[in-house]
Design a binder for these strands. Structure first.
Lengths: 337, 337
DNA sequence: TTGTAAGCGTTATCAA
DNA sequence: TTGATAACGCTTACAA
């Protein structure tokens, strides 16, 4: 069932069917009766034009690739939703790719995306440190937008993780904390490294030295937060507050603290990062930093769409920075005396 | 940059380039040196064949659509990941569509998916009650697989929610509970309705009447679990146990109970459903039913791929049922006396 | 072993 | 206002 069949059934030429189905601004020249006849046939046989043929001809697929580490990480679903909603509004389809921060998987996906000739790609997290992404898209004029800070020559949507973490530390020192432990994350994530950097810088600014013993690296999953918090809390002079690089580890940490007989926040205060949807429903409700992931996804898609319209031109690797907010809830208090 | 350019640069014909790049089992007839020459050019210029053209010709896009209500619902990410991993292994791309259980959005996405000529579609949750999905795909020989119970004539991957909920109720009555409250979900979800049905049936089987006052409907989000649990717990003779139709509402319920000064499980036992990743890290750790969503996604994709291979033939609307397991953790105890 | 050319389902150009 | 036809980039008979 193709445009020729429809044309035959309606007793017109394929050109006419095309004009009815894909009206161009300039040429509104189909007689109402003819249009009617065509539409009737289209409706009767349930014909839908083949977008592959259209894309081939117009060199435009109306599809974007969304590359991220792992959709199972609760940080990403709102971002994906933001991209998807904006894409759907703007008339684009979204192809999802989970890389697990793995170079080989990333390379394979990039290959696939280029072969399908996606109009653009949104890279969120993880892959942004991979140099392989630098030039692959160039010959195909594939537009790229990055979500998060990165080392690539593409425009991006960001959040100031250093400053946000500074606000967290400021809040804690304001409460009187001096021994503030940190549950860090993998070096492969620039986002996480910025949070670590924010922790360091703020501590220094507050006149508190950076103490290596108070920092341990997790893998961003709940269990590692549980493990690391357990170690940190078991130290001879334990920290009076714990900050985690993300909420998943913070939740794990809260469990560990509770299991160790420690009360949050009476014995140790706890702060997370991301403001995942469950954060406000655990008890004590988790104090954390809200990151506008949904908006970031939407903004990335919109930025991409704008680049499509502008057509050629250089990418302009500027960054748009959205703001975070510290969500003060119940998991922090003054340190025990 | 197309196959002709490559052919010219390598001093061969386009047919030869094609044969090198897309070797068919039958025709291994390219001289090694020629092949070498072609591959060198391909590598040098970074050429990637246009899959649109290939798809147009072969009537096969190697793409599947994944239609679900909302990726932000923590139930879905593992399912999506399961689909994606299997798809990537089998050589398929995945196009994501969030319908919000909305008829119009669903219709729009279905339209888009058909226009891109996806080889198949995986429908997970929500949309399965929509009659519009019955015949749309037929004329395009688009294969369809459903995840979850449904009313459509397609094969599916399921889980026995009625039996699983029966196990939950059995566990609670075994503990001595008689007044078991239920936080239900929207009627639009067959999955959720099966859980409600399981609750009813098991109660009846246990010789406990179904008491309308103990059942209230939520919307599957945390806040509604919080609200509904609050109402249920405020009743003159409050339930000694609460079962939620999903974990998100269970977490909200736990917060409500805690805020009302009730202890879980000493004063009221609580059971969730889904075994979301955070469930085992909240305290008390949530007793819940583990649903193999990742495997379900993978199985759906594999089933779809098998249908592609088999080619024509009738769809065979059979169901493959995977099993759930009750995860007994800390949120249940015998009822208070 | 390689090349020529038809054709996949559209849109766009030009003529009628 | 409509129609014939050449592309788009690839694969695949068929010919050489």
């Amino acid at each position: 069932m193709n445009i020729r069949d429809v044309a035959a059934a309606a007793g017109v030429s394929v050109a006419t069917v095309s004009r009815v189905l894909s009206p161009k601004p300039g040429s509104q020249t189909v007689r109402p009766e003819t249009r009617q006849r065509v539409l009737e046939v289209v409706d009767r046989v349930g014909y839908r034009p083949n977008d592959l043929a259209r894309a081939l001809l117009q060199d435009r697929t109306a599809t974007v690739g969304l590359v991220l580490p792992d959709i199972s990480n609760p940080y990403y679903p709102p971002l994906v939703r933001g991209v998807e909603d904006a894409a759907s509004t703007l008339g684009y389809r979204v192809m999802l790719c989970n890389t697990d921060r793995d170079e080989e998987k990333t390379a394979t996906y990039v290959d696939t995306l280029i072969k399908t000739r996606v109009d653009g790609i949104i890279i969120a997290g993880g892959s942004t440190t991979m140099p392989m992404l630098r030039d692959v898209f160039e010959p195909y004029r594939t537009k790229v937008v990055v979500v998060g800070r990165h080392e690539l020559e593409y425009p991006s949507i960001q959040v100031d993780n250093v400053a946000a973490m500074g606000e967290v530390i400021g809040y804690l020192t304001g409460l009187g904390h001096r021994r503030i432990g940190f549950i860090a994350g993998p070096a492969s994530s620039i986002t996480v490294q910025d949070r670590v950097e924010g922790y360091r810088a703020a501590l220094r600014a507050a006149g508190i030295g950076y103490n290596e013993d108070l920092v341990r690296e997790g893998d961003l999953q709940e269990q590692s937060g549980y493990d690391v918090a357990g170690e940190l809390a078991a130290q001879p002079t334990r920290p009076t507050a714990l900050v985690a690089a993300n909420d998943r580890m913070a939740v794990g940490a809260m469990a560990a603290l509770t299991d160790a007989g420690l009360r949050v926040p009476a014995d140790v205060s706890l702060v997370g990062f991301d403001d995942v949807s469950l954060a406000s429903y655990i008890r004590p409700a988790l104090t954390t930093v809200s990151v506008p992931t949904y908006d970031m996804g939407g903004a990335a898609m919109e930025l991409l769409a704008r680049e499509f319209e502008e057509g050629g031109g250089t990418p302009e690797p500027g960054a748009r920075v959205l703001s975070t907010t510290l969500m003060v809830r119940e998991s922090c208090a003054a340190p025990p005396r």
